[in-house]
């Protein structure tokens, strides 16, 4: 069991996932991760005075980036709300299913999910024509244009939510998948104030990534 600080105290290696920028660049540190060999993991990285952070499946949507790698973290492992941390880590292999095409498709899928939610709201408000206009959009840019037109009045829950859908679609059209996903989740939260809505959206987004990138379920391997 993790302690209050998240330290599991386990002497284990944890398999996890890590998003990096193109070229294996750490998004915040800016350093380049050493690449694994053909049959061997990359060398261990131990940041001075720091830890290596990575994702469980459920954490992936919080840290979207261009490259997705399977990594090993060395204990002690700390379990945090949206990531895990080990004293050092190394790259095992790149998940080739997560490429630029997948990244862009992820943003579009999130925007379309938000569109479907707002369509159901418009139908509930009896605004069938507006729902149809959204349903008939064929590209993120078109979805953005129609959503922003509907959001201009922003007088009902559906029109308010349409603003978030428009923002999501705009970012999806730009290829900024993380922003598209973010606004899509905001749309769901604006539409549904019930507890756990964000967690459900994150879960859906994580499932999408898992299926598209072909991730297995990471395990904790005893050394």
């Amino acid at each position: 069991m993790p302690s209050d600080t998240g330290d599991t105290g386990a002497s284990e290696i944890m398999l996890a996932w890590k998003f990096l920028e193109r070229g294996r660049v750490a998004p915040f540190g800016g350093h380049v991760w050493p690449t694994p060999g053909t049959d061997a993991p990359g060398p261990w990285i131990q940041p001075p005075g720091g830890e290596v952070f990575a994702c469980r499946i459920s954490d992936l949507p919080w840290w979207i980036n261009a490259e997705l790698w399977e990594v090993e973290l060395e204990a002690p492992i700390r379990t945090l709300s949206t990531q895990v941390a080990g004293c050092r880590g190394r790259l095992l292999r790149r998940m080739v299913g997560w490429d630029d095409v997948a990244l862009r498709a992820y943003g579009v899928a999130c925007a379309e999910r938000a569109r479907d939610l707002v369509v159901s709201l418009f139908l509930r408000e009896g605004r069938t024509a507006d729902a149809d206009a959204l349903r008939q959009t064929r590209s993120p840019l078109e979805l953005c244009r129609v959503s922003q037109g509907l959001a201009a009045e922003a007088t009902t829950p559906a029109t308010t939510m349409a603003g978030y859908v428009g923002a999501s679609a705009f970012r999806a059209a730009e290829g900024r998948a993380a922003a598209a996903a973010r606004h899509a989740a905001d749309a769901a939260m604006a539409a549904d104030g019930t507890p756990g809505v964000l967690e459900r959206e994150i879960e859906w987004q994580a499932r999408w990534i898992v299926e598209r990138a072909g991730l297995g379920v990471p395990t904790v391997a005893t050394v």
């Binding site: 998004p27 915040f28 840290w63 945090l80 709300s81 949206t82 970012r171 730009e174 993380a178 973010r182």
Partner: peptide, 16 residues
Amino acid sequence: EESVRTQVEQHLVWCP
């Protein structure tokens, strides 16, 4: 502190 740093990083992920 860690919680604030995480908030900053998460913002940077999605905010162009």
